[in-house]
Amino acid sequence: MNISFDDSVIKIDVDKEIYSLTVLHKCFYWYTGKYSLDICALDSTYLITISDVTTAEEKDALIQKIRKDLIDFKTREIISIETKNIRDLLIAKAFAHEDTFEEDPPPGISDPLGFDPTSIK
């Protein structure tokens, strides 16, 4: 990540391989209350431009926050991708009307004499 600051504008270059456009949009959405932002695609990076950064302290605090936020939103993206199916399944089950959607219990009733719970009516 390359960060430069010049005349109240912060420019950040992030590696496209690491940070997707979705992550960048979600992350920098939160900065649009106070600042003007621009995101554009270069060859192997995305360039984010943040304007109206007035003081040096503000710049430092902002850069620190941006580093944390980028990691956080990247983490969120991973969670979202990895849990998409389970989340859809969970909500489908939550709103299903019948219990045809339900899982079997985990196996192993562990009775040495061979009790079969499905035998009871």
Partner: peptide, 8 residues
């Protein structure tokens, strides 16, 4: 382990 959906 596998992740379950969560936010933070």
């Amino acid at each position: 382990y596998f992740l379950l959906p969560f936010r933070f």
